[in-house]
């Protein structure tokens, strides 16, 4: 084990996969110079046939990934900011997520659409969305939201090796976060959540960048004798429902922390699943800590007010525990 920054863990995973799989290609905007550092140095090693800058043309890029994958390549389509996936959404929603089904399994589409997502950096509304619920709703796309350097690398390897289309969303601005990463090559299976803390009193499910503030809240409450179980689903499609249900049946209380806007958020989906499956075990209403249905603001105090944070999680914990 060594401590590594998230972006370094991703970069090493990409490098390893490029070396391992000669049919793997990566294209996207400014991937040769690498804005975030995730694709840094790769073009020098693998050349422009395999690592290539595209024009700023998300509409054609997302569809090219489908065509190149259908024709036998493994493709990483780097979309930079998650909001730009809206621009390229047509081929993701209408082609990538449906082509295998519509052709009765004639083909597989090994594509990874990767980008950063989420707010907290005064990047304003068009660079700060957490758009994972839109992809979850498509049905034919896997959705991966790593929260630590280790998960970022292990889930990226699994995403690349998966024969299906995957949207891989890395929390924006968290590339510098440090974490332990195993020295050997490891893969984290998609669809397996991580239980980050054990507890008996309450379950918190936190997604992507929300795991950090949730972890601080959980550890704070532990010092006060409140046992909170913290689960990071790691992938939203497929979703490790069993781990979540098991925990909720044990604790009887559930908070979901999600950086998506509230309406039809991943939190809403998980809440409804648990309401259906764990109803008799619930001791309090399920609480969602999400983003209000507004555009993410630019000015720091406004943005801070909108995003879930430790304080809002603490308030939710009090509310749920005090419910009688």
């Amino acid at each position: 084990m060594a401590k590594k920054r998230m972006i370094q863990a991703i970069n090493e995973a990409l490098d390893g996969e490029m070396q391992r799989d000669h049919k793997l290609i990566l294209f996207g905007e400014d991937v040769e110079i690498s804005l975030f550092g995730d694709t840094k140095g790769l073009v020098d090693k693998y050349g422009t046939d395999r690592i290539r800058n595209t024009p700023i043309s998300e509409t054609v890029m997302s569809g090219m990934a489908v065509g190149a994958a259908a024709a036998g390549f493994n493709v990483i389509c780097h979309m930079m900011f998650g909001n730009f996936m809206y621009t390229g959404f047509d081929s993701i929603a209408n082609q990538a997520s449906k082509l295998r089904y519509m052709t009765a399994g004639q083909i597989s589409l090994p594509i990874v659409y990767m980008s950063v997502f989420g707010g907290g950096r005064s990047a304003a509304a068009q660079h700060s969305d957490a758009m994972h619920p839109m992809f979850m709703n498509l049905g034919g796309i896997k959705v991966v939201t790593p929260s630590s350097p280790m998960d970022a690398a292990g889930l990226l390897r699994a995403s690349i090796r998966d024969p299906n289309p995957v949207v891989y969303l890395q929390a924006a601005g968290r590339g510098g976060e440090l974490g332990e990463v195993p020295d050997e090559e490891f893969v984290i299976e998609l669809g397996k959540a991580a239980r980050l803390r054990n507890g008996e009193d309450l379950t918190i499910v936190a997604i992507g960048a929300m795991v950090r503030p949730a972890l601080r809240s959980v550890d704070f409450h532990a010092t006060k004798g409140v046992g909170i179980e913290l689960i990071d689903p790691r992938t939203l499609v497929p979703l490790d429902k069993e781990m979540i249900f098991k925990s909720v049946r044990k604790t009887g209380r559930l908070i979901i922390v999600d950086e998506a806007r509230d309406t039809c958020s991943a939190a809403s989906h998980i809440a409804s699943l648990c309401a259906e499956e764990c109803f008799s075990a619930l001791k309090a209403p399920i609480k969602r800590v999400t983003v209000n249905d507004i555009a993410i603001p630019y000015s720091p105090p406004l943005e801070k007010n909108v995003l879930p944070n430790e304080e809002r999680i603490n308030n939710a914990v009090s509310e749920v525990l005090e419910f009688v």
Binding site: D49, M61, G63, V66, G67, A68, A70, F73, S91, M102
Partner: peptide
């Protein structure tokens, strides 16, 4: 394949052409 989205095949074919070239 045929396609229900008008223009849907244009980007896919461009990607298939990239595969042909590579």
């Amino acid at each position: 394949g045929a396609n229900g989205i008008v223009g849907g095949g244009i980007s896919i074919t461009t990607g298939a052409g990239l595969a042909s070239k590579l």
